[in-house]
Amino acid sequence: MSAAIEVHGLRKRFGGLTALDGVELEAHPAEVLGIIGVNGAGKTTLMNCICGIYRADEGRVMIGGRDVTHRTPHEIAHHGVGRTFQIPRVFRKMSLIDNLLVPVLDRDEADPALIERAENTLEHMNLIELRHNFAEELSGGQQKLLEMARMLMPDPTVVMLDEPFAGVHPTLCKFMIERIEAMAAGGKTVLLISHDLTSIYRLSHRVAALNEGRVIAMGSVDEIRSNPAVVEAYLGN
């Protein structure tokens, strides 16, 4: 099966700090690839390079076989890449419906059809009753769900979730896990960053462990759990 996303030799430096140091990874359709690592390992930088916020110094990013390195974020979004953020970045003074319409503004579909799709997506995320509220009026957990709904609106092939469970109530966490499983079951490629190893191990088909900007281990959950380099990076000697 061809990879939905491929990263080859990705390097990113901030002044004297090397945040990514030749990262190599690939993920396939319908696969959840967990990305773990201690703070500062380069997880979010990797996501930012993939979706075009940061310009990689070296290396290539391929989405669906097409080279998107150095493309702008909105061009990469049009290649079928969606994402959420560690701290929710919703459009605060827009209604939930309008938040969901933003990623599909360039679609040829008529407005009523898009609004209906947005409402169905909000229903799927248990947010339908709040559809006319401004996003700033939602709780932190609800904003995370809204981001997820917004990400799903254009039906992306690759979704990147940055710490989706951080600061979220366990009940909501369970709901989000079900939704992420549904995304993968629907054929989407999921890149999942989380410090919550229990959720990562439960959801991921494979896991990549990052340390100091390098992939130090990649494999199944069991392989990663027993990998001495990963254990050392997390727990020290």
Partner: peptide
Amino acid sequence: RLGKALRAVRDDAEAADMMGVNV
């Protein structure tokens, strides 16, 4: 749609960019 895009950019330009809006 232009108005919605403008409001999205006003609220968070970087997020709007990543949602496919040509900021």
